[in-house]
Design a protein around this nucleic acid. Sequence first.
RNA 1: CCGCCCUUAGCUCAGUUGGAUAGAGUAUCAGAUUCCGAUUCUGAGGGCCGUGAGUUCGAGUCUCGCAGGGCGGGCCA
Length: 566
Amino acid sequence: MRDNKTILIEKTAIVLAEKGVTLSQTETAALFEKPSDPKLGDLALPCFKLAKTLRQAPPKIASDLAPLFEGTEGIARIEAVGGYLNFFYDSASCLSVVEEILQNDRYGSSDVGTGKTVCLDFSSPNIAKRFHLGHLGTTVIGNAIRNLFDFCGYKTVAINHLGDWGTQFGKLIYAYKHWSSKEQVEQGGIDELVRLYVTFCNQEAEDDALKQAARDAFHLLEEGDAESLEIWEYFKEISLREYQKTYDLLGITFDSYNGEAFFSDKMPAVVDEIRSKGLLELDNGASVVRLDEENMPPCLILKSDGSTLYPSRDIAAAIWRKNEYDFEKCVYVTSAGQSLHFAQWFSVVRRMGYEWADGLVHVPYGTMSVGGEKLASRTGNVVLLDDLLAEAVRKCGAVIEEKHPDLDNKAQIAEAVGVGAVVFNALANNRIKDSDFNWEDALSFEGNAGPYVQYTYARSASILRKGGEPAGDNTGYEPCAEETALVGKLAEFPETVARALAEYEPSIVSRYLLAVCALFNQFYHNCRILNAEGASRIFRIKLAAATHTVIGNGLDLLGIRRTEEI
RNA sequence: CCGCCCUUAGCUCAGUUGGAUAGAGUAUCAGAUUCCGAUUCUGAGGGCCGUGAGUUCGAGUCUCGCAGGGCGGGCCA
């Protein structure tokens, strides 16, 4: 079908040239669009823009052009409607799309990224804190974008930039030494670390000496004190052990866990570099880079006490990563609230003379709230990710128990569907939109939701199990409306992947999958597959196989497990 | 005060370079299975696309003003 488009573009260029309008290949291609309603045709040529140069009414242009396209390869019918010229592909091209998908398990993938490396900085939780809803966005969006890059041939480096450094570790170490023990931490895990931190913060409010004690403890850690380092390593290990369980459940892996601690000793050199390039200015004791030209407030590099800040760390990390990975792009998936921060330090890197700053990309996403209130550990207004996932799995288990009690691997399937539902939900809307969490909606798996996609996938798998190999000769078969509509949508998968990647927007894939599922279910409902006969049966099984491939690849991209059975 | 983002059906949201009658899900109501998995499918009602101008043959989409909401704005990250 995409071949048909190419043919049409070339033909159009010739036809228009006869009319005295010469356009380049890309200009001609830009004239085409997909009809709003597939019933109108497979491809449309709006003639409004041509009206100016041809000095004729668009409807007249359309009807004049129509006969000139007679006999174009792959085109069955041409209709001039209003100012539009609508093209209908013939059934042979419909069959060939299905064959193309069957020959390629990785249908939709490309090699545009071959030889290029992309770093993706996402998830990045703070050590010794619970993984909550606020981390879900960056984690699943980042992972999906990583998958998209992989699918398009890029080499990807998934980086979990851990929040594993800072004065809070002074507090934790102090609290651990005075109020806890290895046994208690071993028992309680992160919960115990959180308890220690909260306890310290409460005490600290009433006791100034504690504040100093925390600073001293962190200073000791920075100096490389063996005992402090050991405790710090231990906290990190305890935390990662628990995070890993969540990542395993989500099917997410990282290539690097280099976090703030890793870069702590790499910042002085970078600050010196900024200074030597004449960018650093003193302002009220702090060192800043002015960004007046960019119409932004100054970027703070050093506090008045000489210690570094968030931007300095990101700049140091970016430079290190560029040297280490020679990335084409470095993508940061964080909340939209940090947009200014990223715009500022991207600018600083550019002012440092690094042209690769253009490859730094901030991918923002909307704020998640609970009950209309900000997420806040302090006030207890949080929903832990583990709790949400566990509840989703439990609910799916209950549904399976009720509807398919004989199913094998019930536990695994409940897990796949429950976790998948949460992930799909997080990836279904444009990432920039804010959202408010409530349990009812989060666990509502009806309609446009993950289970619908997984169910449809399982349904197509079931057809394939029962129908045998999707093979045989179906030449000359005339597909019905449901079939052509589904094939048309399947053929859009490659461009859908490309657009999702270009916009760093996984929801484009999610919504595409919902559309595929709707069309497959309509096809399934209206067309007999297994007890059809001859070419019809052959084609329909192939179509089920092609749908299976596309939905499967789509689920892979979103980071949702495939379910051959539900 | 300044900057960025958001505003489309009762609710949650789509709407790709400006194009044909603004679409899904959900909720409400009415239907469909002798047959491949009913977590399915069909139909109905539901809209001054926040508001006012402008550009254009054509604006949900682009520009500007305004309103409402969210998030930022030098020593947190």
